[in-house]
Design a protein around this nucleic acid. Structure first.
Length: 243
DNA sequence: AATGACCACAACCGCACTTTA
DNA sequence: CTAAAGTGCGGTTGTGGTCAT
């Protein structure tokens, strides 16, 4: 089915936004509210594509945007949420008040991604040196680098919950609701089992990026009620899938 | 001082999902 | 029910700033 392009490219401004454009957009949204992005530029008198306006507003002009460095706590939270959710930046951003998906994505790509990657490499090295000392055949189950136990991003908004065979005794989770903003919500989060730090299976320290050992549930699809997590929970807990 | 490499981040693009007529 | 419009999301690119040579 043919689709008209989101906006005619001719005669539209591109690139960095000027202060005047910002002001026009902000004023317009203050009066008319968000939404109707496609028509917004025309009505507001902006020579911009609607998408561009939306992005500018969401990532930069919104009054509740928190600017400045990502704190250590936020960083830890991002790492954990990424481990859990993969590249679903909007969901991750939803747990970090004032932060945008774009900001987190950028931060990940420039900082955390590298950190985690390096960390992974270190671990691989250590594993290898250990393995060369004591080598048993079944230890050679390897997984591609960076593979995580997460639902693939862009896979679609999960509205169904699927557990692998080992989870059959789990009570069915309530159906999910998807809000207009695309945030998926699950009413029941009890299927996430937070393991307190220091427990046999848990990571020893919340500052440690090393959570590889929790590669449980690699074949599950589930929705997460992120609305019920809070920062402290996430910082003090690791996630495993129920068995 | 000039310039090339690298980094950070804003903005763009295309696809997929949702809503509407 | 279906097609088209509207919107959101994640990946990628472009650009300005900083650092190293």
């Amino acid at each position: 089915m043919g689709r008209s392009p989101c906006c005619a490219k001719e005669g539209l401004n591109r690139g960095a936004w000027t202060a005047t454009e910002d002001k026009i957009l902000t004023d317009y949204i203050k009066v008319h509210g968000e939404g109707r992005w496609r028509n917004l530029p025309k009505k507001a008198g902006l020579k911009r594509c609607g998408k561009s306006c939306r992005l500018r507003w969401l990532n930069y002009l919104r009054p509740d945007i928190k600017r400045g460095n990502i704190s250590h706590d936020e960083e830890e939270l991002i790492v954990r949420l990424h481990k859990l959710l993969g590249n679903r930046w909007s969901l991750i951003a939803g747990r970090l008040p004032g932060r945008t998906d774009n900001e987190i994505k950028n931060y990940w790509n420039t900082n955390l991604g590298k950190k985690v990657h390096d960390h992974h490499k270190k671990k691989e090295k250590m594993k290898k040196s250990k393995a060369s000392l004591v080598m048993t055949p079944k230890m050679e189950i390897t997984r591609p680098e960076n593979e995580s136990n997460v639902v693939k991003s862009k896979a679609m908004k999960c509205s169904k919950v699927f557990f692998g065979p080992q989870t059959q005794n789990i009570e069915p989770i309530d159906t999910t609701t998807v809000t207009a903003a695309g945030q998926s919500m699950v009413q029941n989060t009890s299927n996430f089992t937070p393991i307190p730090s220091g427990s046999p299976n848990g990571a020893s320290s919340s500052t440690d990026l090393d959570h590889d050992q929790e590669d449980h549930g690699s074949d599950f699809m589930m929705n997460v009620n992120m609305g019920e997590f809070c920062l402290s929970d996430l910082l003090n807990a690791d996630f495993i899938m129920p068995k």
